[in-house]
């Protein structure tokens, strides 16, 4: 009798085990923050072995090193050398680290009607954003801005022929501030996948790409509220997606009661107006990066056609009145975290 009781207990344990199989796995999350080359990278890896974690950190560190050394807009390196050569108007052999960025951003420049324009390095520099410390103001003189604008720097002036590059416009100076981070994240993710890592988030300073899942559930991303500390919304990511947010709160200074932020409208030469933040979900991080900037510049009235041209399927724009503009597919994915439901203007589907 006693022994049978023991066996029955075993049997019940087996039943529990069967039930237990459908329960979520144990926590196997590796979460770390790396600060390399001026960028804070927040990484989450699910189910990675210690060797893979080590490899991932090495990959990220190396890629950030490339980003910092090769694509820095004002510290001497391949990009500043390229910019020097661009002024000459002559053909020159482009540093291989810079070449793919030129090729890809030329295409994105065209598809965004020039709203994503990495050729306006001189304008960004004039505004004082080519510095590790934020400028204090005053904003640059209107005449200085106007004379730079009149020279009409754009990526169409940059020609590529094999390994060689030239600019027919001496005012073209490249600044990949709205692109290099996305490009670097794409390279990191490529290498993580090669290393056999299937579930990860790479978040570099608030812009991220996620692959796979967090165990039995998708990754959950909080989107910052541009108006006040705290969250605007949450979204779930499954598979392979990038989330890029451009906001007027990222790099800015205030002067005379006006906020001057780092996202310069290439059409006016001034920080883009009318928008607090733009969030884009897209598969490719480099394109998401460029698109978030282009839609920010386009503003609440014109973001939709630009998003279509850039083949963006999920976009959300918060205008300066706090109204949210987005497409229905995006609306279906965001869960608002704010106390009151914000006012929403839905566009046609993208």
């Amino acid at each position: 009798m006693k022994r049978r009781g023991k066996h029955l207990v075993l049997l019940i344990l087996a039943a529990l085990l069967i039930a237990g199989c459908s329960r979520p796995q144990q926590q196997r999350l590796h979460h770390a923050q790396l600060f390399s080359f001026g960028t804070l990278v927040d990484i989450s890896l699910w189910g990675a072995s210690p060797a893979q974690v080590e490899e991932a950190e090495r990959i990220i560190h190396r890629q950030l090193q490339i980003m910092h050394n090769a694509w820095h807009a004002w510290q001497p390196g391949p990009l500043t050398a390229t910019n020097q050569q661009l002024r000459s108007g002559e053909w020159f052999v482009c540093p291989p680290a810079v070449m793919p960025l030129i090729v890809q951003s030329k295409q994105l420049y065209r598809r965004s009607n020039g709203l994503f324009n990495p050729a306006i390095g001189q304008l960004v520099s004039l505004w004082g954003f080519h510095s590790d410390t934020l400028p204090q103001g005053p904003p640059p003189a209107a005449t200085a801005i106007a004379s730079l604008l009149a020279q009409n720097p754009g990526m169409d002036a940059v020609s590529v022929d094999g390994q060689r590059v030239r600019s027919t416009n001496p005012a073209v100076q490249l600044d990949f501030g709205a692109f290099a981070k996305g490009y670097a994240i794409d390279r990191i993710v490529e290498k993580l996948v090669d290393a056999g890592i299937g579930n990860a988030i790479i978040n570099a300073g608030g812009d991220l790409r996620a692959i796979g899942r967090h165990g039995d559930r998708p990754w959950r991303i909080g989107i910052r509220n541009p108006d006040r500390p705290g969250l605007l919304a949450g979204i779930e990511l499954a598979g392979d997606e990038s989330v890029f947010t451009s906001g007027d709160y990222e790099r800015f200074y205030e002067y005379g009661g006006t906020r001057y932020h780092h996202i310069i409208d290439p059409r006016t030469g001034y920080p883009a107006r009318g928008v607090r933040s733009v969030t884009v979900i897209h598969d490719n991080a480099a394109e998401a990066d460029a698109a978030a900037t282009a839609l920010f510049v386009a503003g609440p009235r014109d973001w939709y056609p630009i998003a279509r041209q850039l083949d963006i399927k999920y976009a959300m724009l918060v205008d300066d009145k706090g109204t949210i503009h987005m497409n229905p597919a995006m609306a279906a994915r965001v869960q608002f975290e704010t106390a009151d439901q914000p006012e929403i203007i839905l566009s046609k589907e993208l």
Binding site: H214, I221, E250
Partner: peptide, 8 residues
């Protein structure tokens, strides 16, 4: 209430 990471 937890998020894995934040976009900003």
């Amino acid at each position: 209430a937890r998020f894995d990471t934040f976009s900003y």
